[in-house]
Amino acid sequence: MDTTLIVTILAIGVALWFAFTNGFQDSANAIATSISTRALSPRAALLMAAVGNFAGAHLGAKVAKTVASGLVEVPGEVDGLIIVMAGLLGAIAWNYTATKFGWPISASHSLFGGIVGATLAGGGMVLWDGVLQKIVLPTVISPVVGFGVGFLVMLSIYWIFRNGNPVKLNRGFRHAQTVSAAAMALGHGMQDAAKVMGVIVLALYTGGWQDSATHIPEWVYIATAAMLAWGTYAGGWRIIKTLGRRIIDLNPPQGFAAETVAASVLFANTWWIGAPISTTHTITSAIMGVGSVNGKRAVRWGVARSIVLAWILTFPVAALVGALAYIPFGLLF
């Protein structure tokens, strides 16, 4: 069998494996708040998230094209495919590590870090302007927006319903969370499935199997969405606990506000900008913003600092593992 074909199949297989790990690492993004406020049962929430991820994959083509072109330039055929595969393995290793410790990191930044590290190790070219504009700036801006808008939305909810009956309000917001959680799941699929699709397209283009770095075959949509949905349904229970209980003790109005804000940021970015932002950063910062309305002590800032530290470490650690993973594959092929 042709070496290029073998390595292409391996690279696509590893990309789909990454989609699975992305699902169980990022499943908490869509459902942690709904589970913690008891708006949905864990399995019902996971099933809804999986369906939302599957549907959202078909709406994220703009993000997929951003990932497939404009971030790195790798050699053609086998050498380039090895870089893609090594980068994915670096991301997968960090995803598993973070899940073990319950850190809600960005699986997306694991992906980008791994590919950048492998690209540097393999002699490819990293387009730093593209990394700055399409990854670094959105990474900095989206949590700030999530925190600020989350604070304002929660403040508005408290003011609008200031005279309401707490029991009735909690019941009503639990029902409303079904909608906001579904929107969050859809937004997660639009972003995270799209990133994996972009990597598969990059592998197909690098291997010479298609002439365009932006064309997405239908089977890529289906395979990626299915693996992401499977991983989501498998669940990431430690991360769900971190987001749902350890940062703040969420009530239904807070859960609704955080999910609505995060989903709105994901939708707006996907449709208008197409930058691959982190769903983890967006929902976590929204939760912090929502909790801050109740005062400084309402948010467990020690937990928040640990999460932010994990965010900071994600890109360089995944890059290092991606670079190390390139070495044995480079020797093998």
Rank of each mutant, 00 (worst) to 15 (best):
R174Q: 12
A68T: 05
V131N: 02
W94M: 12
G189I: 01
G102K: 09
G189P: 03
K195L: 07
E218F: 13
I240F: 11
G70V: 00
M197Q: 13
I6Y: 14
V321P: 04
T284S: 15
G76Q: 09
M227E: 06
V153P: 02
W17Y: 14
R297L: 00
V167I: 09
T260W: 11
G117I: 05
L313K: 09
H215Q: 13
A28N: 11
T232I: 05
K296D: 00
V144Y: 00
M125E: 13
M288E: 06
R43W: 12
H58I: 03
M184K: 01
K296F: 10
G231Y: 04
I92F: 08
R238I: 11
G70L: 00
W128L: 04
M184C: 02
I312Y: 07
L309H: 09
R246D: 14
A55S: 13
I216Y: 09
P253L: 07
G150R: 07
L243C: 03
K62G: 06
T214Q: 05
A275N: 10
I312R: 04
V290M: 13
A323N: 06
L16Y: 08
A121D: 05
L313M: 15
M197N: 07
T214R: 03
V14C: 02
S41H: 03
S110Q: 12
Y158I: 12
G102Y: 08
A91F: 03
H188R: 06
L5Q: 08
A203D: 11
G274R: 07
I82W: 07
G76Y: 03
D192N: 06
A229Y: 07
T279K: 04
N269A: 09
M190L: 09
